[in-house]
């Protein structure tokens, strides 16, 4: 029942230290390409004619927004952890004994 599944060797490429750097570079490259593609749209189509807000048409708006927001969220999370994190047994220890 469980033997038929192939081993995930194909996926190993994703995380082998040797290949991760390469993947990361590909990612950065795609990001750059996407900005370029956006600009391409501006020149070769009317895609930006119908945006709801002006700032949507700023070059790389979405990309920048995504990047900044992500970093913001992570740093907020780090701060939040300092505030609300408690030991795992927080509730377990202090809740009154269940009445019999």
């Amino acid at each position: 029942m469980t033997g038929r599944e192939p081993d995930g060797d194909g996926l190993r490429l994703l995380v082998e230290p040797a290949t991760t750097t390469r993947w990361v570079r590909v990612l950065y490259a795609v990001c750059v390409l996407l900005v370029v593609a956006g600009e391409g749209l501006r020149f070769f189509s009317h895609a930006f004619d119908h945006v709801h807000y002006g700032f949507e048409a700023w070059p790389g708006f979405y990309g920048a927004f995504g990047f900044v927001v992500f970093v913001f969220i992570v740093y907020c999370g780090r701060w939040l952890r300092g505030v609300v994190s408690r030991p795992e047994s927080y509730y377990r220890v202090d809740e009154p004994e269940r009445s019999k």
Binding site: L27, Y28, L34, F61, G66, V69, F70, V71, V74
Partner: peptide, 11 residues
């Protein structure tokens, strides 16, 4: 753009 830049931020 949004998603991949965010991913890039993660990386």
């Amino acid at each position: 753009q949004l998603l991949l830049f965010a991913t890039a931020a993660f990386v």
